[in-house]
Each structure stands twice: as C-alpha cells, then as structure tokens.
C-alpha cells in the first residue's frame, strides 16, 4: 500500500498538474474550501484551468487568488456574485463562464464520480439552462438531460482524515466536498486534523479513502463572509 500522506500542499500537487487541466474545488462560499491547495495551485503556475466550483471565492482569497493571476480559463459555477475581479474578467471576455443550477452541479459531480453519464431533472426546464439539451417526458412532466462531470483533479477540504484517506467533514463545511472527492481522476484532500489509521469511527466516515489519492494536513484561516450575530441582552 503506497503512502498517501504528503508533508504540504505543494508536494501533494506534484505530478498532478498540467496546463489546460480541469479542477474541482470543494466549498460553499469560503466555507470548507481547500485553502492551502488553492494557494499551492497558484504557486504551481499551471495555466488555462477549467475550475468547477459552486462559487469563485472573493477578491484576494480562495479561488479569487487564481483569478488574480489569470490561471483560470473557465468557471463552471452556480453563483459568483462576491468577486469584482471575476466580474471584470468575465465582462472583458477573458474568462469563460458556464452557470449550472446548484443542485444540477452537485448531481453532475455525484453522477460523474459514480460512473453515471447523464440524468434527467426537472430543474431548468424552459430556461436558458435547458437550451440545446435533450428533454424527455416522464409521467406527463418534462425533464432535461444533464451529464455527469469528472475533473482531472479534485481538491477538497475535510475536518479530520486518517492516513488511508478516510474523511470526516464538519457542519456546513461538508457541502460539495464529498461529491467532488469522488469525481476527480485524482483527488487531494487537506484536513485540519490527520490521525493514525484506525482512530476514526468507521461508521462516522463520510468519504471512504478509496476516493482520496493524497492527503495533507494544513492550517486554515477559515474566513467568514457575513459575520451576522445576535446581541446578548445585558446580563
């Protein structure tokens, strides 16, 4: 059994990158993003990346870092509202963009990872999203054909992992990470806590290690986009 554990994000990426590659990047907003692997991808100088990610980071953080360096050729996302550099590149024609409804994007990744070439969904029927796609009527309702997605590499972030690559996510930082882990031809996971094999409860593992080729422990900034609070009454 080969060793899956790498000392840092940079070494974990070695041999897995090439110009024109596609990368799935987990996270919702800035929650549960593979912070260290995104930085390492920037530092690798790989160009012309197609990034599949629900969002595109913010200016100066997350996938925003790869936009700044113009390493991204195309984004496949459901919502990209938080990023001025994204808007600038898109409006000037430098960046291609394909919008997928969020549930369709999630299901395309799940399907891709499970070897399912396509599936029919009601989402998007009659909208721009369905233009040019095959539709079919089931029980009197129209569905549109969407295809499974795979990427050359998926980068995901989990809370805990073990040396076999088994992963456990935490709270809403799970989001797209489990499906994307299955849909990369290669998958690198970064975790907050890396433990010895056998220390995780097998019943609690969200992503089995078979999907994970390399694993790295990192430190995380965990930036918050909207810090909303409830004021405490005077005690």
């Amino acid at each position: 059994m080969g060793n899956k554990v790498y000392p840092d994000a940079k070494s974990a990426l070695e041999g897995f990158t090439f110009d024109g590659m596609s990368v799935m990047s987990g996270g919702f907003g800035l929650c549960g993003i593979p912070e260290n692997l995104i930085i390492a991808l920037r530092d690798s100088n790989v160009k012309g990346i197609t990034v599949i990610s629900n969002n595109a980071g913010v200016d100066g953080w997350g996938l925003g870092l790869l936009l700044e360096t113009k390493q991204i050729k195309k984004m496949i996302s459901s919502y990209v509202g938080e990023n001025k550099e994204f808007a600038r590149q898109y409006l000037s024609g430098e960046l291609e963009l394909e919008f997928n409804p969020q549930g369709t994007l999630a299901e395309r990744c799940r399907a891709g990872g499970a070897g399912i070439a396509g599936f029919y969904t009601k989402t998007g029927v009659g909208t721009l999203v369905a233009e040019g796609k095959e539709t079919k009527v089931f029980n009197g309702e129209t569905f549109v054909l969407e295809t499974g997605l795979v990427a050359d590499l998926s980068i995901v972030k989990a809370w805990k992992g073990d040396k076999e690559g088994n992963l456990i996510f935490r709270k809403t930082a799970r989001n797209f990470n489990p499906m994307m882990a299955t849909a990369g031809k290669k998958c690198i996971a970064e975790v907050e806590i890396l433990v010895e094999t056998g220390e995780l409860d097998p019943d609690a593992i969200h992503t089995p290690g078979i999907y994970v080729d390399r694993i790295v422990q990192g430190t995380f900034e965990k930036r918050i986009e909207q810090r909303t609070i409830t004021k405490r009454e005077n005690a």
Binding site: Q102, G103, A173
Partner: peptide, 28 residues
C-alpha cells in the same frame, strides 16, 4: 461564531437540537 456553520446567504448561524448536516447532493 463558527466559520464552519453558515447558511446559504453565507451568514454565520447556529444549530438546534434537531439539526442535521449533509452534502450538497443530499441537500438538493
């Protein structure tokens, strides 16, 4: 405040006793 606990508007929120978490594909 917990950076791992946000809603779809990316706002920080809290959990309840009945809360469950799941992936985006389970959610959709």
């Amino acid at each position: 405040i917990d950076a791992d606990l946000i809603n779809a508007g990316k706002q920080t929120i809290t959990a309840l006793k009945k809360t469950s978490y799941f992936s985006s594909s389970d959610s959709f």
